[in-house]
Simulated assay, not measured.
Amino acid sequence: MATVILVRHGRTTANVSGLLAGRTPGVELDEAGTSQAIRTAQRLAVVPLVAVVSSPLERCAQTARHILEAQTTTPTAIVDDAITECDYGDWQGQLLSLLSLEELWAVVQTQPSAAIFPGGESLSTMQARSVGAIRRWDAALEAEHGPGAVWVAVSHGDVIKSVLADALGMHLDLFQRITVAPASISIIRYGTMRPTVIAMNADSGDLSWLKQSASAADAPVGGGAGADAIPSAG
Results as ranks from 00 to 15, higher is better:
192 T>P: 06
206 D>A: 12
229 A>K: 13
180 V>S: 07
208 S>P: 05
182 P>V: 04
219 A>H: 09
164 L>C: 04
170 M>D: 00
181 A>K: 13
220 P>Y: 01
168 L>P: 00
170 M>N: 00
194 R>H: 11
213 S>L: 11
212 Q>S: 13
225 A>N: 13
169 G>E: 00
217 A>V: 07
190 Y>S: 03
196 T>C: 13
202 A>G: 15
183 A>T: 00
213 S>N: 10
197 V>C: 01
182 P>G: 03
231 P>R: 08
188 I>E: 03
180 V>N: 07
185 I>K: 08
175 F>H: 14
210 L>I: 04
168 L>M: 08
218 D>E: 14
196 T>L: 14
185 I>Q: 12
164 L>K: 01
171 H>Q: 15
214 A>K: 00
225 A>C: 13
158 D>K: 09
164 L>Y: 03
156 H>N: 06
229 A>R: 14
219 A>C: 08
180 V>E: 10
170 M>I: 03
184 S>N: 06
162 S>C: 06
193 M>W: 11
179 T>V: 13
182 P>E: 02
209 W>R: 05
180 V>K: 05
201 N>E: 07
164 L>A: 04
198 I>E: 08
173 D>Y: 09
227 A>N: 11
173 D>S: 10
166 D>F: 09
192 T>V: 11
164 L>T: 02
224 G>D: 01
215 S>N: 10
164 L>V: 09
220 P>T: 00
161 K>H: 04
162 S>V: 03
156 H>C: 03
209 W>Y: 13
198 I>K: 05
212 Q>K: 11
192 T>F: 09
219 A>Y: 11
216 A>C: 05
223 G>S: 05
176 Q>I: 10
175 F>P: 02
181 A>R: 15
168 L>Y: 03
157 G>C: 06
202 A>H: 10
219 A>G: 06
187 I>P: 03
198 I>R: 07
212 Q>L: 12
187 I>E: 05
166 D>C: 08
217 A>M: 06
222 G>T: 06
176 Q>P: 12
162 S>A: 15
197 V>S: 00
226 G>K: 10
171 H>P: 13
204 S>M: 09
188 I>K: 04
223 G>R: 04
229 A>M: 14
205 G>Q: 04
219 A>F: 12
158 D>M: 11
171 H>W: 12
194 R>K: 09
186 S>M: 05
203 D>R: 15
212 Q>R: 12
229 A>L: 14
221 V>H: 06
205 G>D: 02
194 R>N: 08
197 V>K: 00
168 L>K: 00
156 H>M: 05
180 V>F: 07
185 I>L: 14
216 A>P: 00
186 S>K: 04
198 I>A: 08
172 L>E: 02
203 D>C: 13
201 N>F: 07
229 A>Q: 14
169 G>C: 01
177 R>N: 14
201 N>L: 07
227 A>T: 12
163 V>K: 03
191 G>T: 10
211 K>L: 09
167 A>S: 11
187 I>D: 02
231 P>W: 10
221 V>F: 06
228 D>N: 10
191 G>H: 10
218 D>R: 11
183 A>I: 01
227 A>P: 10
169 G>N: 01
186 S>R: 02
157 G>N: 04
162 S>D: 04
222 G>L: 06
167 A>T: 07
203 D>G: 15
223 G>I: 02
218 D>Y: 09
225 A>V: 15
193 M>E: 14
192 T>I: 10
179 T>S: 15
191 G>A: 09
203 D>E: 14
214 A>G: 04
172 L>K: 01
158 D>H: 11
